[in-house]
Simulated assay, not measured.
Amino acid sequence: MRLGTVERIWRYPIKSTGGERLASADVDERGLAGDRLYAVRDAEGRFGSGKNTRRFRRMPGLLRLRSRYPQADLLTEPELLDPAGVPVADATAYLRHYLQRQDVEVAREGAVSHFDQLALSVLSTATLDWLRITLAGTPVDERRFRPNLLIRTPPGTPAFVEDQWLGSTVRIGTAVCVTFVRSSERCVMVNESQPGLPHSPFVLKTIARTHAMRLDALGTVTAPGTITAGDPVTVAQP
């Protein structure tokens, strides 16, 4: 059964910053190659985020920045782009000034994963379109929810169709297989301002009111390969 097609592919080289849109991406058991491989880390070992937890420290403003790998070279540290989209010369030095914190640095993933939850996040256009209608007057696109894949679903597909995918394994293109496990519990990150997306408290309130704070489908990669925009997404046969 066909669920849809890959509309857009997103990778976030430095966790909690804006990402880069890709035409294709290699995928292994960790997820998209290079995704969230780096993070902004403080002296206590906590990672920059939109929330405060045992693992994460709230660092407002990170989403106004973007990150990308120069010339798709995953062997080098990613570039950090300022709010105007200009690459900075030294990411750590820039962040210390930008965040007004001298204890932060851009750090590559070590023993502690940079992922909040699972390796791959998938969002449907059905859910995204519903949010745009419900939040009329508030700019909304998938960047607020930071999925790796936006899936173009057929006309008439209901919002939150991702719930129906949980527990199933899908094939993306010819090789990649993903088993969907659960959905993400959303936090204030979805309200934060990004280029072209102003701050709005209504985004999280709407998700909380209508869908118990949950949005997307999170999965584990069960077969590696390459994903390309336009690839079909089908339920894998047993």
Rank of each mutant, 00 (worst) to 15 (best):
V140A: 05
T76Y: 03
N191M: 10
V6I: 15
A208F: 02
L150I: 15
R36W: 01
S184Y: 03
R132A: 11
T174F: 00
T169G: 08
F160A: 13
I14W: 00
V88C: 07
V112M: 09
S16I: 04
V188D: 13
T92R: 02
L135Q: 10
A175P: 00
D26Q: 08
W10P: 00
V88L: 05
L75Y: 05
S67I: 07
L166H: 02
L204A: 13
R36P: 02
G34W: 00
R146E: 09
M213Q: 14
R214E: 12
D103I: 06
E20S: 08
V106G: 11
G156A: 09
L215H: 12
L197M: 07
P155F: 04
E20R: 01
M189V: 15
P13F: 06
T179M: 12
I172D: 03
F115E: 10
R36E: 01
V178Y: 03
P155Q: 09
R132V: 14
P232C: 08
P87K: 03
L150E: 05
L123V: 15
T228I: 11
R146C: 12
V170T: 08
L118C: 05
D28C: 11
Q117R: 12
L166N: 05
P238M: 13
T206D: 10
P195N: 08
T222N: 06
R144H: 09
V233H: 00
R101Y: 01
G167L: 08
L128N: 04
R182H: 13
M59A: 10
G50M: 04
V221C: 08
L63M: 14
S121W: 05
P70I: 02
L80N: 08
E185Y: 02
S168A: 09
G225P: 00
G85T: 06
A119E: 13
G50I: 07
G19A: 09
R64W: 06
T125K: 02
L3D: 01
N148H: 07
P139V: 13
T222H: 06
L37A: 15
R11V: 15
G167M: 05
P83G: 12
E109Q: 14
R41S: 06
G4V: 10
I9V: 15
S24D: 12
R54S: 15
L3A: 08
V27R: 06
P224W: 05
G219M: 10
L95Q: 03
Y98S: 07
P154G: 14
G225R: 01
G31V: 08
D28L: 11
D90H: 05
P224L: 13
R46A: 11
S113E: 07
Q100M: 12
F56W: 08
G167R: 03
G31A: 07
G18T: 07
T210D: 15
V233T: 01
F160C: 11
R144A: 08
P139F: 11
L218P: 04
T169A: 09
R11F: 04
Q164V: 05
F202Q: 14
F47L: 14
A93N: 06
T157Q: 04
E77P: 10
R171S: 02
R8G: 09
L128F: 08
D35F: 09
D82I: 13
P195C: 11
T76D: 10
R186V: 15
V233Q: 01
A217I: 05
P198Y: 09
R186D: 14
H199P: 01
